[in-house]
C-alpha cells in the first residue's frame, strides 16, 4: 500500500520533471559518456570509432608539444583575463555604489557589456586592433611616440590582446554581481566605523573587502570557468595563431574535430576540459555551502 502510493507520487512528479530530464539525458549525459567513449578511439571521418587506442590517446596528447602549449595558453589567458576583469569591475562597482543623483544611468552604462555578444565584440575590437596607422590602439601609441604593433599577428601580443577584449566583455557581468554584493552589506557596520573615525581606505580594507569576499570568490570561479570556455574571439580574431600562440583548448578541440575530423583525439581533449571545469565547479559549490553557514 505504502509502496504503491510512493510509486504513484514518483510517476506523478515525473510528469513535471521528464521534459527537462529527457533533454538532459539526450543532449548532456549521453553525449558526455559518448565523448569519454570516443576519446579511447580513432574514428573515421564520419565519427564512427574504428581503432581502439585506449588510454594511448591521452598519452599522445599529454606528450604532444602542441597540446601542452594549448593548455598553457588557456591557463595564461585565464591569468591575464580574470584578475583584470574583477579588479576593474570592482573599482566600477565601488564608484557606482555611491548615493548620487543620476547614479542609475552610470549603473546601466557599466552593465552594458553584458548584452554584447562575443561576435560583435570581436568585430569591434578587430578594428581597434587594426595593424595599420588607422587602428585606434596604434594611433594612440604613435601619439605617445611608440611603435606600430601588429596586435593580433604577433606571437607576444596576440594572447594579451584577446585578453584585453575579453576583460572588457566581462565587465558588465562582474559589475552587476559585485554591485549586488556591495549593496547587500549591512549599513550599520560602516556607520559605527565612521563614528570611530575610520577613513575611506580603512573602511574599504577592514570592512568592505572581508565582507565582500564570498562574492569576490563567486565571480573568481565563475569567470575562470567562463574564460576557460571562450571560443568566439579566438575563432574570429586569430584562428589559434600566430604560431599556435592563441590555440587554447576549446579552439583546439574545434580544430581537431571539425577541420581535421580527428574526433577521437578531440574527444580526449574535451574530457580533459571537462575534468578541469568539474574541479572548478566543485570548488565553487564548496564555497557556496560555506557561505550559507556563516551568514
Amino acid at each position: 500500500m505504502q509502496r504503491g502510493k510512493k510509486l504513484k507520487q514518483l510517476l506523478y512528479a515525473l510528469l513535471y520533471l521528464s521534459p527537462s530530464l529527457l533533454i538532459f539525458i539526450v543532449f548532456i549525459f549521453y553525449p558526455m559518456l559518448k565523448t569519454v567513449y570516443l576519446s579511447f578511439y580513432l574514428t573515421n571521418p564520419h565519427g564512427d570509432p574504428v581503432v581502439w587506442k585506449g588510454i594511448l590517446n591521452y598519452g599522445t596528447l599529454l606528450s604532444s608539444e602542441v597540446f601542452r602549449k594549448s593548455l598553457f595558453s588557456s591557463l595564461l589567458f585565464v591569468l591575464y583575463t580574470v584578475p583584470g576583469t574583477i579588479l576593474i569591475a570592482l573599482a566600477l562597482a565601488l564608484l557606482a555604489n555611491a548615493r548620487l543623483r543620476g547614479i542609475a544611468v552610470f549603473r546601466t552604462l557599466y552593465s552594458a557589456t553584458i548584452g554584447v555578444s562575443v561576435a560583435s565584440a570581436a568585430t569591434i575590437w578587430m578594428f581597434l586592433f587594426a595593424p595599420g596607422n588607422n587602428g585606434m590602439f596604434n594611433y594612440l601609441l604613435t601619439l605617445l611616440g611608440g611603435p606600430k604593433v601588429g596586435w593580433l599577428v604577433t606571437t607576444q601580443t596576440a594572447l594579451p590582446a584577446l585578453s584585453l577584449m575579453s576583460i572588457w566583455m566581462g565587465l558588465g557581468f562582474n559589475f552587476i554581481v559585485l554591485l549586488g554584493g556591495l549593496q547587500s552589506l549591512p549599513e550599520d557596520i560602516f556607520e559605527s566605523a565612521r563614528i570611530d573615525g575610520a577613513g575611506w581606505w580603512k573602511q574599504l580594507q577592514h570592512i568592505t573587502f572581508p565582507l565582500l569576499s564570498p562574492t569576490l570568490f563567486f565571480v573568481l570561479v565563475v569567470d575562470t570557468i567562463n574564460t576557460f570556455q571562450s571560443f568566439g574571439q579566438f575563432n574570429i580574431l586569430t584562428q589559434g595563431g600566430p604560431d599556435n600562440a592563441t590555440n587554447v583548448i576549446v579552439y583546439s578541440i574545434y580544430r581537431e574535430a571539425f577541420f581535421n575530423s580527428r574526433f577521437g583525439p578531440a574527444s580526449a581533449q574535451a574530457v580533459i576540459l571537462f575534468v578541469i571545469i568539474l574541479a572548478l565547479t566543485l570548488i565553487q559549490f564548496g564555497v557556496v555551502e560555506r557561505k550559507v553557514h556563516y551568514q
Binding site: K34, I253, A270
Partner: peptide, 15 residues
Amino acid sequence: TLMIPGESTLIPNYL
C-alpha cells in the same frame, strides 16, 4: 548538468 561544459558534449551532439 551544470558541471558539464557544452564544449565537452559538442562532438557527439554534432554527430
